[in-house]
Simulated scan of single mutants.
Amino acid sequence: MSLQKRYGPWALVLGASEGTGREFARQLAAEGIPSILIARREAPLEQLKAEIAQEYGVACINATIDLAHGDALERIVAVVDDREVGLLICNAGGDPNGKLFLDVPLSAWLDLIQRNVMTTMAVCHHFAGPMRTRGQGGILLLNSGACYGGAATMGPYSGSKAFMLGFAEGLWADLQPHGVDVLTLVLGRTDTPEFRRFLAEKGMDMPEDVWSAEAVARLGLERLPHGPIQNVGQADDQSGMSPQSAAERRARVVAVSKVTAELYGTGH
């Protein structure tokens, strides 16, 4: 089944202004799927929308929304209006702080949690419902290798990504019987403008083992039907980022879901 038939007629891309979000929108447009482009900065969104229209003849729409604000879902829903979203891509969710927990005001960490956890969960809850009713759709959650464990300067960030990992596994188990695909794409080092800014700030050179944003987006769309996890740079049965491979974690989710189905009578 083509991407357009499986995940159309519209995609909703959060964090679409640059990097992997931008690449997802471009690759979807190449398949004839227009996107609703959401990010904080208007100029990059306008530029991306114009490029997509010129190169692919696909008309996207865009809106500037801060996903760290409590009204983000309400504003996204208003922009989407009555358009049918067949694919939700949550690409926003980095760590703009990069400092020790106590060296940053609490408000900054609360913004991170609002963006990475609360808004992500809210948009999934809103848009997954119609997908389940239609028996078709996809949800792609961009993650980080930080989901597998914390480290200095990464406490709240890794905690938010660990939430995404467990949430994606559970959401996949919930929706897979209804024909809705869910994948959390776990990234390592990726060549994005944000990563380049970080390297420049630290006076570091670009590492050799870096994936391009284009390759990451292509992999995510290819692996979306094979959730709930894809570790970028690793085969399905290969461990490395964590002691368990994606295949082993999938088997665990299936096994535990059978137990919970019996406990709660969900019928899975």
Rank of each mutant, 00 (worst) to 15 (best):
A173D: 10
C90N: 14
L175E: 07
D174F: 06
P177S: 10
H125G: 14
R75Y: 13
N91Y: 03
G145S: 11
D81R: 15
N97P: 03
D95P: 04
A162W: 04
P96R: 11
M118G: 03
C124M: 09
G170E: 06
W172F: 11
K161R: 14
Q136H: 13
F163H: 03
G98C: 01
Q176S: 14
F101C: 09
D95R: 00
N97E: 13
L110W: 15
V117N: 03
D174E: 15
M118Y: 13
T119F: 02
R132M: 15
L165T: 06
G93Q: 00
V79S: 07
K99D: 15
T133W: 11
A92N: 07
T119P: 01
L140M: 05
S107I: 12
L171K: 02
A92G: 08
D111Y: 06
G149Q: 04
D111I: 06
G149W: 04
P130N: 11
M131A: 02
H126W: 01
R132P: 00
R134Y: 09
D95Y: 05
N91K: 10
A108T: 08
I139W: 02
R134T: 10
L102T: 15
E169H: 13
V80G: 04
A78Q: 14
W109P: 02
V77G: 05
V80L: 13
L102A: 13
M131W: 00
A168S: 15
P96T: 11
V77I: 14
T153G: 00
G166E: 10
A78I: 08
D81P: 12
L110K: 14
G135F: 11
G98E: 13
R134E: 09
W172Q: 02
N116Y: 09
L112S: 01
G93H: 00
I76D: 00
V80Q: 05
L110D: 15
E74M: 10
R75V: 10
H126S: 05
P156N: 09
T133H: 15
D82G: 06
L100G: 12
P130K: 11
G149A: 02
P156G: 09
N97Q: 12
S144W: 08
P96Q: 06
W172S: 01
L102G: 15
V104M: 02
F167V: 07
C124T: 07
A122P: 01
M131T: 02
G159S: 15
L88F: 04
D95V: 03
I113Y: 08
G98A: 09
R132V: 12
N97K: 09
I113E: 04
V80T: 07
G98W: 11
S144G: 15
F167Q: 02
P177C: 05
G155V: 12
A173E: 10
G137I: 03
L102C: 06
P156R: 08
P105N: 12
K99L: 14
Q114C: 07
E84S: 11
N143Q: 10
H125C: 14
D82R: 08
G170W: 04
L171V: 06
L171E: 00
D181C: 07
H178E: 12
L87A: 04
P105L: 12
A128M: 06
C124P: 03
G150Q: 03
V104C: 07
M154A: 14
G129C: 04
